[in-house]
């Protein structure tokens, strides 16, 4: 009975995996096909056409876009970690007037959809001269209510005795924050880091508005550019570019999946 149940579970799981992952497998396979094979509707390439990848890198500055995406995502990730952890520290370890009120204010920003501030933000960034600059793609995203909330939840589990001990030893707040709080919160920081990296990498509307040339344009908008300038027959090249866009985040997700799941669930439920 047990074996029957297990086997059927495996069959169901495998079938579902195939269905769900099919679009990516299909795209991966097509990225090696010649234009003709794609049009004939083959599912597997007869020979591996690596030149699709070369072509994709030649048609648009895909390498530049890749570097831009990596740079922007890393800067936002570290920006969010720094800014949110500082705010979370204040909320947990420092006593100040209006703490509760300010926390409510922070949380309330989670209810404001990003689109609500999109138009004036565009004007602000334009006036700051940040169109086609990395600054416009990174700095507006440094403050994160979600990040502050997630880290605050974790910081609260750090025993108060540690803070008292640090005070007795004459260790100032900044050293306590840097040398004690941050190192013990490594897991939450990693979770928030992975989450921020993925969301920044995948951002679409804001980079579309603020990058009008190729200098700082990230991969997502580069893919849009490639897709719109390719002729109908070049699906192999477009799918090769898709692979370049999707594989880095898939790797990040595969490595960080356990972290992310735990962190996000805790953040959602506590």
């Amino acid at each position: 009975m047990r074996i029957v149940k297990q086997t059927s579970l495996y069959v169901v799981l495998t079938a579902l995996s195939l269905v769900l992952f099919f679009p990516m497998l299909y795209a991966f396979s097509a990225s090696f096909m010649s234009a003709q094979e794609v049009l004939l509707g083959h599912f597997l390439p007869s020979t591996l056409h690596f030149e699709n990848y070369l072509q994709a890198f030649q048609d648009v500055p895909l390498f530049r876009f890749l570097i831009n995406s990596i740079f922007i995502s890393l800067v936002v990730t570290f920006g969010v970690l720094a800014v949110s952890s500082m705010a979370a520290y204040a909320f947990v370890f420092l006593d100040f007037k209006g703490r509760k009120l300010l926390f409510v204010l922070f949380i309330s920003t989670m209810m404001i959809p990003w689109e609500a501030s999109m138009i004036p933000n565009f004007v602000t960034v334009q006036q700051l001269g940040w169109i086609n600059r990395y600054a416009g793609l990174t700095i507006p995203f440094f403050a994160s209510a979600f990040g502050t909330f997630l880290l605050r939840q974790y910081f609260k589990t750090i025993p108060k005795e540690m803070q008292e001990a640090a005070q007795i030893a004459g260790i100032g707040h900044f050293r306590f924050f840097m040398n004690v709080v941050l190192p013990v919160s490594k897991t939450s920081l990693v979770t928030l880091g992975i989450y921020t990296f993925l969301t920044t990498w995948n951002a679409y509307l804001w980079p579309l508005l603020t990058t009008t040339d190729e200098l700082v344009r990230p991969l997502q908008i580069g893919l849009r550019q490639l897709q719109s300038q390719e002729t109908v027959n070049e699906w192999g090249v477009v799918m090769a570019a898709v692979m370049v866009v999707a594989v880095p985040t898939l790797i990040v997700l595969f490595i960080g999946q356990k972290h992310l799941q735990k962190g996000l669930t805790d953040g959602a439920l506590k």
Binding site: F21, L223, V238, V245, T249, L250, L253
Partner: peptide, 14 residues
């Protein structure tokens, strides 16, 4: 969970 790692742009083009 893999689709979480695939961007809107990449999956739309696929």
């Amino acid at each position: 969970s893999s689709s979480m790692g695939i961007s809107v742009a990449a999956s739309s083009v696929v």
